[in-house]
Simulated scan of single mutants.
Amino acid sequence: MKKIKFGIAGLGRLGKVHAQNIASKIENAELTAACSIVANELDFARDKLGVKNVYSDYKEMLSKADIDAVAIITTSSEHCWQIAAALDAGKHVFSDKPLGTTIDECRLAEEAVLRHPDLIFFLGFMRRFDPSYTYAMDQIKAGKIGKPYMVKATGIDPEALVQSAIKFSPTSGGIFIDMAIHDIDLMRWFLGSDPIEVYAGGSTFKHPEFKKSNDDETGIAMYKCANGSMGFIHVGRTASYGYHVETEVIGTEGTLRISPVPEKNLCFIYDQYGVRQECVGSFPERFAEAYLLEMENFVNCIQKNKKPDVNVYDGTKSTQIAFATAESYKKNSLISIKY
């Protein structure tokens, strides 16, 4: 089967993960071009991955590179115009989340996808491809926990990275837009319904620097969905023990818990502190397999001309929900979510 030739835009921490996967870990894909505005990222593509065609201009890569598909792993505010430009250039598109940073941006991407029904667009909600989350969804579909009616999700970044979060806070859009998008997507996915109301709040006890950006180090949000089901999301930036992502799905006949202990591996340590497990330290480490599996799925969709299960509208709705959550947080009031 013909290999899919990729160009990648953005080679930061996550971009490097995707670039390495495309270059060496996916049988039917090859990385033939790379684009970045950061010189040492292009050096990485050239020297570490053997990519000969590197560009500092995205549009130049689209017009000159011999590619079938583009992986967009750039700054969130750049996603939507880059999606539209790639589709209009006849390329299949994989884009990292979020779809956009405004609803107008999301509509731009929607219109581009509609203009090109023959091309594949894939949005990188990678947790749907994590084996544990996939297994949980299979259990739900099989009726093992009855009707799911509540999702409780926790996502807390490590204290070790808090200074970068503080630095990014003034332009992040706030804790919910910055951190909750994956949990929002999982809530919609597991419950099979969109939230119609949200109430959100936040607090800061350790790093008052967040308050200077009108932000917080911890946030919680409660949702009521159209079918009567409920969601509860807890996001934060100060886990002292590592990177903590946990999801609980409660149904009428049982409960599923994914990663109740964010263990690094299955090794237990017996020492002067007792019996313990080390925790996973970052999102690239925790979801390494999911990032590979989602890109493999994208390649498979292209080769089989099959539309992905996650689409551009999932991206728009998650963005709408995140903005409504941020509005509730700022106004300290219950907000109705409009689509």
Rank of each mutant, 00 (worst) to 15 (best):
Lys212Tyr: 00
Thr171Pro: 00
Leu99Pro: 01
Leu99Gln: 02
Ser240Gly: 11
Val245Glu: 05
Ala19Glu: 09
Tyr223Gly: 02
Leu11Pro: 00
Asn21Pro: 05
Lys306Trp: 10
Val93Lys: 01
Glu253Arg: 14
Ala239Ser: 14
Ala71Arg: 01
Ser36Ile: 10
Lys224Trp: 08
Lys91Gly: 04
Gln20Ile: 11
Gly228Cys: 11
Pro262Phe: 01
Thr32Glu: 05
Tyr149Ala: 06
Pro98Gln: 08
Val198His: 10
Ser318His: 10
Val151Thr: 13
Lys3His: 12
Ala136Ser: 13
Thr102Asp: 06
Ser282Pro: 00
Leu293Pro: 07
Leu186Phe: 04
Thr102Gly: 04
Leu87Pro: 04
Gly192Phe: 02
Gln272Lys: 12
Met137Ser: 10
Ser95Val: 09
Gly12Tyr: 08
Glu327Tyr: 07
Thr74Val: 08
Pro208Ile: 12
Cys267Ile: 11
His182Glu: 11
Asp309Arg: 10
Trp81Glu: 13
Gln277Cys: 09
Glu78Asn: 13
Gln139Asn: 14
Asn297His: 14
Ser203Cys: 14
Ser213Cys: 05
Leu31Phe: 04
Val113Phe: 11
Ala9His: 01
Ala71Val: 09
Met230Tyr: 06
Asn53Arg: 07
Cys80Met: 07
Leu62Ser: 05
Leu49Thr: 02
Asn332Glu: 11
Tyr339Ile: 15
Ile321Trp: 14
Tyr223Glu: 00
Val54Asn: 02
Gly50Met: 08
Ser36Trp: 03
Ser164Trp: 11
Leu31Glu: 03
Tyr135Gly: 06
Ser203Thr: 15
His182Val: 08
Asn21Tyr: 10
Tyr270Val: 09
Asn265His: 03
Thr238Asp: 14
Ser336Asn: 15
Thr101Asn: 06
Asn311Ala: 05
Ser213His: 06
Ala33Asp: 00
